[in-house]
Design a protein around this nucleic acid. Structure first.
Lengths: 238, 238
DNA sequence: AAAATAAATTGACATGAATCAATTGTTATT
DNA sequence: AATAACAATTGATTCATGTCAATTTATTTT
């Protein structure tokens, strides 16, 4: 674990075809021989659809990084109301780097492959690898800007605008990781979309129907959408 | 700038009577002789009420840390709608550690004293001071959890619940930094509170009146509130 | 393939918060 | 101290989204 290895990470950063831009995924995005270097501090783990990775307020011991698949993180209120804080993609971190409690629950959407980092071991490792610490800081800063954007979406946008933003964000996300950005697939349910956007399932459905009848989107299936007129979507976001 | 200095920071962390818990304020919280060490990488700057520190989408060159006073950070939509992303306190960071554009505008609330860090110089400094990098990561992670909590407030809580959460958060914040947590002062206008909570000024005012007539709060002035019954406020948040 | 179960859509209606408008209270300015 | 300018409150009304209910479509299970 010489600091040399960490500095070399820079070169592998853009090699990953899953998470090119958002950050490298610590494990999958490294060549097999480099992967070995990280086996000291992370272990790989698999989850299936709807499996919980951890629950809000659990004592926090790990930081996770998505290798393959998607995760939803959500907060639950006492009376059962749920808010989905985020849908996460390959390369995204979740869990906790240092807090003693998880701030949300995390659940797999579909099949999931993640890297698990023990907080203490990672923390020690960062002392010897400032490049890695900075990279983690960079990624966390980026996630903070995404969360801040979502605050504006939930605080100021109406239903139609929220849906438009949501569709365009997914399209952008796909572009970022080098996938075709049209048609897009919605791996989550309508209820999940509603809980993510602070709306009800009925409102989500109605807004989709509006977009459909305006020929702005076209549904191949209810989870496969072709953005016929992305510019029209853009104009929703003022 | 030996890495020794950075490691020693740990001892000064809890000395500051402004920002004890949330993190140390890089400058003010250090003894005068230690302060000297940081003059290489940061400069102090003063602002007055309503002065802009930077504007959204400006090319980002600095990271800031509040020494004294408050800052509001906000996003502006094309049609003039505004969302206040956060009210910041002494010890809080804002600006950008590494992005090339600011994600929000920042404005002083009242008199403000901040430390300015040049991105490039800070970045280089972090390589030699992993403890500092980790501390910055820790603070950023913490701010991320706050932003995530706010997503739930804006996505799921009704007007009364948002106001109750807001008042309790301020009370907690004051407790954290060692001030009396009752009565609390609201340095911002009703419009600011509305723009922070995703409500209108009229709704904010009505909810305050409701709390007043239920004897849950008592207004010394319109900006000085005594929380007569904090437990009742708690029960709002389900 | 048929039946059963779950997910998504659509309609009718209710309601919380926004909007519009007027009034009162507070802080500057001369 | 009087006036002006601004901030906060209160009332009347509208409207976007939520709620409740029924129907259609899609996905499992047998």
């Amino acid at each position: 674990m010489s600091s040399d290895n960490a500095n070399n990470l820079e070169e592998y950063k853009n090699r990953c075809n899953i998470c090119k831009i958002r950050s490298y995924s610590f494990c999958r995005c490294l060549d097999d021989d480099k992967l070995q270097l990280f086996s000291d501090i992370s272990t790989e783990k698999n989850y299936q659809d709807k499996q919980n990775i951890f629950i809000q307020n659990d004592p926090a011991k790990h930081l996770y990084n998505i290798t393959e698949g998607n995760v939803k993180i959500y907060q639950l209120l006492d009376d059962g109301r749920i808010q989905i804080v985020g849908f996460l993609y390959p390369g995204d971190f979740f869990g906790s780097y240092r807090n003693n409690q998880y701030n949300y629950s995390a659940e797999a959407i579909g099949n999931l492959k993640i890297c698990v980092f023990d907080q203490k071991i990672l923390d020690k490792y960062l002392d010897e690898n400032p490049v890695l610490a900075k990279e983690l800081l960079h990624q966390t800063s980026f996630e903070l800007t995404l969360a801040q954007d979502r605050i504006t979406v939930l605080g100021k946008l109406n239903a139609g605008e929220r849906i438009a933003t949501f569709l365009l964000n997914i399209s952008e996300q796909r572009k970022r990781i080098g996938w075709q950005n049209n048609p897009i697939s919605l791996p989550m349910t309508r209820q999940d979309i509603a809980d993510y956007l602070g709306l009800t399932i009925e409102t989500v459905s109605r807004e989709f129907s509006n977009l459909k009848s305006s020929n702005i989107v076209k549904f191949m299936t209810s989870k496969q959408i072709y953005l016929t007129n992305p510019e029209a979507l853009q104009s929703y976001i003022v």
